[in-house]
Nucleic acid binder design. Structure first.
Lengths: 236, 236
DNA sequence: GAAGATTTAGACCAGATGGTTTAGAAAAGT
DNA sequence: ACTTTTCTAAACCATCTGGTCTAAATCTTC
């Protein structure tokens, strides 16, 4: 079988699936239909991790519906090892949340068990070639979920509702320093003003944000896009 | 031209591009090669927004490289109107950051001006049919950028380095309440313990996290994945 | 069952924080 | 020029917060 990989060595693969039948099926398929080298298989995530450390494969096919330790956690752990292993998630469900989480933690591909075997081989080819492979149908699901997440989480407040927009420039500066956990004294020094002035600003901030203390003010700022003006930040 | 849309009315389209030549070209292409109805065109984002409010098109083709008001901001504003308009971003560059931001704010498709005209029509077809369309090449770029963002922003600390992992269960509960901006008194009531006990816990938390006050503790918790254990959150 | 960790709770104190009022100077807007 | 907003600053006071020490009850763990 030639699939345009003549230019490099056979990629080594480890397959992980708690269902032994299925595991054997995939193993055979890959051995017969592709140029890849199945160096090991595992029926549990923890065994898989040991094997990966030992064999350092290029590719891991990981079933993410397993008892004991679930596949997503396993993927996260493997990614954390930073061995350059490229993981393809394998599952029966096209649940958008699963797809999203898998891609988020670093899976380089995601395919359904129900898909044709040729597609599995194709996915491995693509991922081995350094690409990310997500079938069109799953890609759609991913994007819908992705956009929905953002719509829900970002700026649920209009400009008028976002009380941060009523702060003056100086108040923003003060709040900025508060969000860094700096005391009144520290703020005063940084802004070259007296401590009592800082207090005045802070009190005005509290009133404008309708909160009672600095922690709440910081939380309000963080939750309503205060930092976003400076930096694009993505938190899990 | 029949493209499998016989079952529904001709979708109305507005095209936005500051380059008039290009605008006309696309308009003609769509009128000749597709079943869609170009109800208006605009050469600036602000005009486009008025037209969109007036015509309520199903689809908007938006060039995102424009002077004056940039296309991304325009997309965000249109999405905010929540008119059900499906926007396809159009640009000359396959800059992953642009792609990521466009998809993040709700673009339903993203195509390059350099792509074949048939692909443009195909993209419109797909998006009009309710799907999200991203050519494979751009999809790859998107995912690489997406995963890179997550890798950078999430958990830069190992388990041993993350001081949150040294907190006891009770301390976590207390910190959890602190991250909601609750006072000692409030925490005491919620946990049915005395205020002095809360203080003890808080002091232990400070020492373990190596911080001096509650704000810093909250910031540490927020920046090091404390909330992540409960909820998947995405902030811009 | 002994050793260690966790949770509970008190006392004492210094200093930080927050609420309120007042007020002058500077800047911005009309 | 006049008004409004913003930035500056002080005084006063109550409360909250944080640091330190001590210590008992309860859970774990070996």
């Amino acid at each position: 079988m030639r699939r345009g990989l003549e230019f490099k060595k056979k990629a080594r693969i480890i397959i992980v699936d708690d269902n032994y039948e299925h595991l054997s099926g995939i193993k055979e398929l890959i051995e017969i239909e592709s140029d890849f080298d199945v160096v090991a298989t595992a029926t549990s995530a923890s065994v898989a991790i040991s094997l990966i450390k030992k064999y350092r494969p290029e590719i891991v096919l990981m079933d993410i519906n397993m008892p004991e330790k679930d596949g997503l956690t396993a993927i996260a752990e493997i990614e954390k090892l930073d061995l350059g292993v490229r993981i393809i998630a394998l599952t029966g469900y096209d649940d958008p949340d699963l797809i999203f989480r898998a891609m988020k933690i670093g899976a380089k591909g995601y395919i359904l068990k129900t898909m044709a075997s040729a597609q599995l081989i194709y996915a491995i080819d693509e991922v081995a070639a350094g690409k990310i492979y997500l079938p069109a149908a799953l890609s759609s699901r991913f994007f819908e979920y992705f956009q929905k997440s953002f719509k829900e989480e970002t700026q649920d407040l209009s400009d008028e509702e976002n009380l941060l927009n009523y702060l003056t420039q100086r108040e923003e500066e003060v709040l900025d320093l508060l969000t860094q956990g700096i005391t009144y004294k520290g703020v005063a020094q940084k802004l070259f003003i007296s401590e009592t002035t800082v207090k005045t600003h802070v009190n005005n901030i509290f009133q404008k944000l309708q909160v009672n203390d600095r922690t709440q003010a910081v939380l309000y700022a963080l939750n309503n896009g205060f930092l976003n003006r400076r930096k694009v930040k993505i938190a899990i």
